[in-house]
Design a protein around this nucleic acid. Structure first.
Lengths: 257, 257
DNA sequence: CGTCATAAG
DNA sequence: CTTATGACG
C-alpha cells in the first residue's frame, strides 16, 4: 500500500506542471493533498476527476485559500471532512477517508509565517488538535495523518536550523509540541523511523524566494504521522524530486499490505 | 519627423516583449504611450530611461491603472500633464510636450466597455474635451494628438461593425462626436487622410479574447489627430504589426520637417 | 517568488 | 485573455 502526501500549492497549478500524469503512474493507493486553493466548482474539469480514483475535496470558505483533498484508488466507507472546530473547518484543513480499520487523513496545519495573528491561529490549532489526536488513538484504528504540519521537528529537519530558531515553523514551543506528538501521545514519524539520520534528502519544502531549491535550502515539514500499529508495516519512505509540481515535494511511503 | 502612438498595455509588459529594442531602431522622434500601468517609481530601472530620449510620465493615482507617457528625441520646452479636469487628471489620461510651435500629445480616452459607470465617465470626457480641443485650435499651434481614443469612427474602422453598434466604442453618439471632431471642430485624421478606404490594414487593436488577432478581428481606435496646418506635411502612415508589444499595435506617421 | 482573487480593459 | 495589485505563504 503506497500513500503519498503533497502540498500541491494550487491544484490547478500542479495540474499544469504534470501532477495528474504523475498520479497515474505513481503507483499510489491514496494521495493526500494540501493547499488545493480551489473550490469544487473550479475543479469540475475531467482532468481533476481521473477514472479509477475516488476523491473528495474539503475547500476553505475563502476562495483560492488552503483546502485539502484525498484521491484514493479504493472507495472509502466514509469521508469525514471536519474536526468540529469552526475556526479550522471553514479553512479546509482536515479530511479523513475511512477504509475498514484504516483512516487516511489529509491535514494542513496553519502557517504562522504571515505574522502574529496567523501564528496565534496556528497556536490555537496546536492547542486544540491533541484532543482529536487522542480520539484517533483511542479509536484503535490504523491511522495515517498525511500533511503539511508546518513544523520542522529537529535540527535534522531543515538546512538552516540555527538562523531559524525564532522563525515560525521551528519555534521552541512548536518543536516541543512535536516532541509530545512522538513521545507521550504515541505517534510515529514514518519517514524518520526508516531514515533516523537523513538530512539533505529528507526535505519536502523549499522557499520560492532566493535559490532555495537549487541550493537545497529546504525544510522537512511534510510528514506521514502514523499510529504505532502501522510501524511494523513500514517498508520504505522517500521524497520525489524528479519532477516539480509545487514548492513542496511528494512524500511517498510504502506500507506492507 | 516620425511620430508613433501606442497603447502599450503595461509598459513593463511591453518592455519584456522587446518594445525598447524596437524603440531604438524605430526611427521615431516622438513616441506617445498610453496605459503605462505603472508609477514612476516602478519605472526607475535604466531600461525605461534609454540614453538619447527625453521622457515624462503622467501616471494615474490608482496603481497599475491607465497612465500616459511621451518619449522624445528632443528636449521639450514644456511638459503639460493636466487638463484642469480633476476626474481625468487623476487618471493619467493626458500629457503634452511642447517643441517650439509643435505640441505632441498623448491621450488615453476612458473606455466604456466595463459598464454603465465607465461609459458615463467616457461620456463626461466627450462632453468636457471639446473645450480643450478648441483652446488647442485657437492657440494656432501645430498639434498632434496621439492616442487611444476608444472610438472607431466609421464602418471602415472595425471588422464587425454590424454587431458592435450597441457596444461601447462604436455607439452612435460616440461616432457622432468623431464626426464633429473631423467636421465642425476642424481636426484631421492623419491615417485616414492618407488611406481613405483602408480597412483590414488599418486596425490598431485586437481583443485578447478569442482569436481576434489571428483572424484580424480588429478595431481602429488609435489615431493621430492633427491640426489642419499639419495636413500638408503628411508623408505616410502605417500600423506596425511585425512584432507584438501589446494588444494594440504602434501607429506610425511620418511628417515632412 | 509564486498561486490565486479581483479589477479593469 | 491579459496586465496589473494584493493576500497569503
Amino acid at each position: 500500500m503506497r500513500i503519498v502526501s503533497l502540498n500541491c500549492n494550487g491544484l490547478r497549478s500542479a495540474a499544469k506542471k504534470g501532477f495528474f500524469d504523475w498520479l497515474a503512474k505513481s503507483g499510489a493507493d491514496h494521495v493526500c493533498l494540501q493547499e488545493t486553493k480551489a473550490q469544487p466548482e473550479d475543479l469540475a474539469d475531467a482532468l481533476f476527476h481521473p477514472a479509477g480514483w475516488h476523491l473528495h475535496f474539503h475547500s476553505a470558505q475563502k476562495k483560492g485559500y488552503a483546502g485539502v483533498a484525498i484521491y484514493s484508488r479504493r472507495q472509502p466507507d466514509l469521508w469525514v471532512d471536519n474536526l468540529g472546530a469552526p475556526e479550522f473547518d471553514g479553512e479546509g484543513r482536515y479530511l479523513e477517508a475511512q477504509f475498514g480499520p484504516l483512516s487516511v487523513i489529509s491535514l494542513y496545519l496553519p502557517s504562522g509565517s504571515a505574522g502574529p495573528e496567523r501564528q496565534a491561529s496556528k497556536d490555537r490549532f496546536l492547542e486544540f488538535f491533541p484532543e482529536h489526536l487522542a480520539k484517533l488513538r483511542a479509536s484503535g484504528r490504523e491511522v495515517v495523518i498525511c500533511g503539511d504540519w508546518n513544523i520542522a521537528h529537529t535540527k535534522l529537519d531543515l538546512k538552516n536550523w540555527r538562523s531559524n530558531q525564532k522563525n515560525s515553523g521551528f519555534l521552541p514551543h512548536e518543536r516541543a509540541w512535536k516532541d509530545k506528538l512522538y513521545g507521550e501521545w504515541g505517534w510515529v514519524d514514518a519517514y524518520r523511523s526508516l531514515h533516523p539520520t537523513e538530512e539533505a534528502e529528507a526535505y519536502t519544502w523549499w522557499s520560492n524566494r532566493g535559490n532555495a531549491w537549487a541550493n537545497n535550502v529546504g525544510w522537512r515539514i511534510d510528514y506521514q504521522v502514523i499510529s504505532p500499529s502501522l510501524k511494523a508495516r513500514l517498508l520504505s519512505a522517500s521524497v520525489y524530486k524528479a519532477e516539480r509540481f509545487s514548492d513542496h515535494a511528494p512524500l511517498i511511503v510504502d506500507y506492507a499490505d
